[in-house]
Simulated scan of single mutants.
Amino acid sequence: MSASLIRRACAAALLLTSTLAPAVAAAPQPGAPAPESKRAAQARLLGEKIVPYKLDFLGTTVGGLSGIDRDRCTGEYVLISDDRSFLQPARVYTARLDVDTDGVHSVDFTGTRPLLQPDGSVYPSPALGDGKAIDPEEIRVDPLKCRYWWGQEGDRPPVAGPPVIQPSVEISDPDGSHRGRLRLPENYTITADRGPRRNQAVEALTFGARGTVVTSAIEGPLVQDGPVPDLTHGALVRVTQQTRAGRVLGQFAYPIEKIFAESDPTSPWGPDTGVPSILAFPDDPARYLVLERTWVAGSGYKIRLYDATTRGATDVQAMDSLVDRPVVPMRKRLVADFHTLGLSTVDNTEGMTWGPVLPSGERSLILVSDDNFDKDAVTQFVALALR
């Protein structure tokens, strides 16, 4: 979910520098499984690069970059903008990144394409109110066919009148042509009293098991799964493993952290927290990197990266609600708190992908922030080394 431009304008530029409290599961964990033998991944900063604000590229405004993935067929990176066709049609970019052990040397955009509807037309602006608008947030390049699989959050209108737009995972060719859609679990559907909250739907997507398993995560708790996190409690969000044809293999509860600070009482905006990206480990279909992103008025962003597993977690796909249920959530261990990495700023990081293996044997991880087309934010590429 992209933070509102208005809300970002209201946010203070302060960034939290307090020490991170130990990660704790957001719900009771009866019968917690035995600890894993594997150590959690560890991360160190390689470097960063900030793209100029509202960079013009081929007549489009570069910004709102919410998802990134590496295309094995071209060696380039593919990025999705969350512009909902307000500035230009909803679109993707391709780029070359020069990253090595000495840092991020350059980010060079090489192309852009609009995402197309099944009839070949571009997606309309939500202002039209025809129910066909999208909210693009995540992109993955299919490791088997090099097509683009991209997630969009749809819309749950805050008031009666505008149509509900269901979240979805669409499939496109690199030229933007529509090729299909992944059938999502039934509990991802927005209804009057069930399903994802507004701006907290499908924002995380990844391929695992050599491209045969598609995993998605809901950004925040489903309406029926309880309240959103606050200062004293975290929450559970659903992570779903599916076949490429859409059959659900398993659904699990991932515990997101409680809110890290009190909001500025003069701000009209409450905290915003959730899971904007998930990334499968290449050698373990049950293991993921999970990005947690939190914004608090007056304190700014807190970005944390976790090493998590579905192994030993309860399969919750048959549970209508997770409230007061004996659920063993996914286990997670902290990999990085972005405030401890030495970055020039910590902003709205939403996308991540594996980069090349480094000479040290470490695997590089590339992350990108969504500037919301806001002059007070940044489009920041960050490279980490993981071992």
Rank of each mutant, 00 (worst) to 15 (best):
L386V: 06
Q29N: 13
V51T: 10
R387K: 15
F57K: 10
Y254T: 02
V107A: 08
D283W: 14
R210W: 09
V169W: 00
N199L: 07
F381V: 15
A377Q: 15
L334M: 13
P221D: 01
R72C: 10
A385N: 08
Q251C: 01
S18K: 03
S106D: 15
D56P: 05
V164E: 07
R247Q: 13
V335K: 11
G161Y: 08
G355T: 12
P359W: 01
V248D: 05
D315H: 10
P268V: 10
L5T: 15
L79I: 11
V378T: 11
D347Q: 10
S177T: 11
T61Q: 15
V141M: 09
A318H: 15
R181I: 08
S177C: 02
Q29T: 15
A297G: 12
L46I: 01
D264I: 11
N372E: 01
G180Y: 04
T94P: 04
V382Q: 03
L15A: 12
P285R: 14
K258L: 04
V368F: 10
E219I: 08
R247Y: 08
T60P: 00
D82E: 14
D100E: 09
R113P: 06
V122R: 07
V328W: 01
D108Q: 13
G161A: 06
D230H: 15
A27C: 13
D230Y: 04
P30H: 07
S360N: 08
W295L: 15
A23S: 08
H178M: 04
R181K: 14
R96L: 12
T340P: 01
L46A: 04
D56G: 03
L236G: 15
Q242D: 00
A192S: 06
R72L: 13
I134T: 08
A13T: 13
L45N: 05
V122H: 05
S172R: 10
A90T: 09
D175G: 06
I6P: 02
D320A: 14
A336G: 02
Q242I: 00
D264A: 05
L222E: 03
T74V: 13
A377L: 12
P158W: 07
W354F: 15
L305G: 00
A297V: 02
T60R: 12
G63F: 06
I165F: 09
D370C: 01
G195W: 02
E170V: 06
R183Q: 04
D83W: 08
A235N: 07
S81M: 05
S216L: 13
S66E: 03
P196N: 04
T19C: 07
P268E: 13
D155F: 15
V141A: 02
I366V: 15
G131F: 12
L14T: 14
E262F: 00
E350Q: 09
L128P: 02
G195I: 12
R197A: 10
P163N: 12
Q166S: 05
T379E: 06
L205P: 01
V122I: 14
P136E: 04
I50N: 08
L16R: 08
G120T: 12
P174F: 00
T379Y: 10
P33M: 11
Y77D: 05
T240V: 13
N187I: 03
G234K: 06
P158I: 07
P124L: 04
S277L: 00
G151K: 04
V382R: 03
V24R: 14
D272G: 06
P162F: 10
L65G: 08
L291C: 04
D56V: 03
